[in-house]
Design a protein around this nucleic acid. Structure first.
Lengths: 255, 255
DNA sequence: GCGCCAATAATTGGCGCCAATGTCTGCCGA
DNA sequence: TCGGCAGACATTGGCGCCAATTATTGGCGC
């Protein structure tokens, strides 16, 4: 018998409202966090199979936690589950990708507007700090760049002071990341490095209409880097890989 | 008895990548649907405990399905789960309720705008049909009224042609329904019956700015029907209920 | 050689059991 | 009589096993 030394409060009815102890949040789950960071860092591509046993061994947990995490991610449309076939990293359709960007334009215009309305000394400092961090980051470190780029939009949403819109922004950024990974054209240049500083400066200047316009333009710019014919699948990937290696055919290799 | 998951499909040799049929969607789960409709019809109030065994027996299924459904609803912030204490119908905080309405103002302004842009003959007919249905519905049937009221906003979102925004609207309507149930003042009148016809007429007239304004006004009107001190709990509810019944005390009832 | 069919193997889904934790009731002492 | 404590009870969480289904591979016939 273990020593149960818990603080006992005087609670007649143990309703969940008054103390609110231990609200389980799936976002704190290490499995969910691992898959999410792997996706946002482009280490997991859309369509990749996420086997339960494999993930359980890879992450050092049991299968039931994997199943819970996958179900959670499936309800967030970040993985897709098929009956008796397992879970795969979500692969948006082209239309869905467009709709995600349209939704981001709507929501992030609102967050920029609200951020300007609520901007105070503290928020101004946060924004300046982030802009400095993003200006002086190592451009060769692709993963750090990705994180910083995402953090800018998240910071704007935080400054808007609306956690519902913040969660939506987080969610849409993850899903658009999957859309970009699915449909990005191979030789697409990076996000123009001036976009975030421009938007940030306009927010600091409290120029609302210009900031909203800049944000919309920025999102359109990102959207233009994807094209609709990215649905070549694993088979094509295999042939492409072997072509890149230089093997034309097995016979020629044997001869 | 047992849920019939068996979807027997005759497929010869489907490639592992191309068709990817049978995407499992938790929204089709009867348990999830049951809880959702119960919540949207105000049969389940915020804070109600959702015991697994109780639900399993009530819905005629096993506990594991209940657990999956509750986990899904928890990730959607419609129920809240506590460690070793079970699941409860989500009870938003006052700030969260305000933020939900703010998000709805943002998103539904966008859906109204897009609906006007994309309005065609078919959508026009749908909207007129719904307006006629809502105009001639039985006002005494509270549940039908609730469904129709919700369907109007859903229809606008559908006409916007963006499934991402449509899903967000659906989600926010459910959550604002919980917020209203949590914070509604007792003698609050119903939603003004002119709001939806006004908005619908403006959409049909393609008067975008007026329609957006009317929608924003409508949402503000709904939001004004809640007040921040609604967090009195079950104890107060019990006393309120007994007061409404007319029982002053147990002794008087026995005498 | 090519395509269809059947058997095998691997993976997922579901269920029962048991442990862990929280809640409630009854008891004891001040 | 009231507050605190301890035991019993109820509920949730987790794990292992087994069934169901699917993907793969070997075999057969054309």
């Amino acid at each position: 018998m273990k020593r149960t030394h818990t603080v006992k409060r005087k609670r007649k009815r143990a309703g969940p409202s008054s103390p609110l102890l231990d609200p389980r949040n799936m976002d704190d789950d290490p499995v969910v966090q691992g898959i999410l960071t792997a996706i946002s860092q482009k280490r997991l591509k859309p369509g990749t199979k996420l086997g339960e046993d494999r993930l359980a061994k890879a992450l050092g947990t049991t299968r039931i936690h994997i199943r819970q995490a996958l179900a959670h991610l499936a309800s967030r449309k970040i993985v897709m589950q098929f009956l008796n076939r397992g879970a795969f990293v979500y692969r948006p359709t082209w239309d869905e990708a467009r709709e995600m960007f349209a939704a981001r334009r709507v929501i992030e215009a609102a967050t920029v507007s609200a951020a300007i309305d609520l901007l105070d000394k503290n928020g101004r400092a946060e924004l300046k700090a982030h802009m400095a961090r993003e200006a002086g980051h190592d451009r060769n470190d692709r993963w750090a760049s990705l994180s910083l780029t995402a953090d800018f939009h998240i910071l704007i949403a935080k400054l808007a002071g609306n956690r519902v819109l913040l969660d939506m922004t987080r969610e849409l950024m993850l899903r658009t990341s999957l859309a970009i990974a699915t449909f990005e054209r191979p030789g697409s240049p990076d996000c123009s490095p001036d976009a975030h500083p421009d938007i940030g400066s306009l927010v600091l200047a409290r120029n609302k209409t210009a900031a909203i316009h800049a944000m919309a333009h920025h999102l359109e710019e990102i959207e233009e880097r994807i094209k609709p014919d990215g649905d070549t699948r694993d088979d094509d990937d295999l042939t492409t890989i072997f072509k890149e290696i230089g093997v034309r055919s097995v016979n020629s290799a044997n001869a």
